[in-house]
Amino acid sequence: MAETTKKRKPKPPVTESLLTSGHRACAGCGESLGAKLVIDAAGPNTIVTTCTGCLEVFSTPYPESAWRVPWIHSLFENSSAVAAGVEAGLKALGKKEGINVIAQGGDGGTADIGIGCLSGMLERNHEVLYVCYDNEAYMNTGVQRSGLTPFDTHTTTSPSGKKSFGNQHPKKPLLEIVAAHNIPYATSATVGYPADLQLKVKKALKEKGATFIHLHVPCPLGWVYNTELTIEIARLAVQTGLFPLVEFKWGKVTRVRKITRERKPVEEYLKHQGRYRHLFASEEGKKEIKKIQAIADANIEKYGLV
């Protein structure tokens, strides 16, 4: 009997997260889940800078703060530069050893308005982990289009209508742009696979230079889906090839998450989300879905995901 019983791993002690509950994120918010996973993987010896956006607004309405680590928000477009200053300051004071510096921002704060500061921080190779919480639109201001909003997505500034299927630009290749800075480590991750995400955070924080995580975080409000579907939708983005999980070291792809067995057509991902409802409403729309499938196929081909 004794031999056949599987040895159970001891349960980890229940500790409070470094991003405490009780903040103001919406039910099912992928971004708050992501932030919690990131900071808990990083641990308490971490200083965090954050761009203006949902994450900042829901976690730090004065006089409340959900953060149990030192945390600073300055502006919409500068968390990377503020983090560079934090890192440089700590170094000059002889206090950097053993302290992680994490900069965070949404897709807008990172890939659009903040890309200049981000590029500077990466190019100078500051010892900073930058996490981009990609919910694929400016959610904090009411779901406007960003450079990371996918093709044919309905947002409030790229609405679908009689003459439009929504956003007509493909998602900006943020991870490749970042990796092209030839930094030690850059990867994509998703809240759909929390263990993978936390492993990547730890991996990144071991590096002595700039690192980056492009984190996919579904948004029930902006994507218009039922709140219990966040994890499922996050996984479907990976499984369809629309959000490939790829790791770069020094600008070169070193690992991908294969989707050989779990590969699904893009409809499986799109159909849950109100932001793609218009594509299912007409024959013309269905043709558009084929274009989105082509984007997924190209990703799969490019990174050898099957």
């Binding site: 500068n78 200053g85 934090v86 300051g89 000059a92």
Partner: peptide, 8 residues
């Protein structure tokens, strides 16, 4: 700004 925030 970031540097001043850590006391540098």
């Amino acid at each position: 700004l970031g540097a001043s925030a850590v006391g540098a």
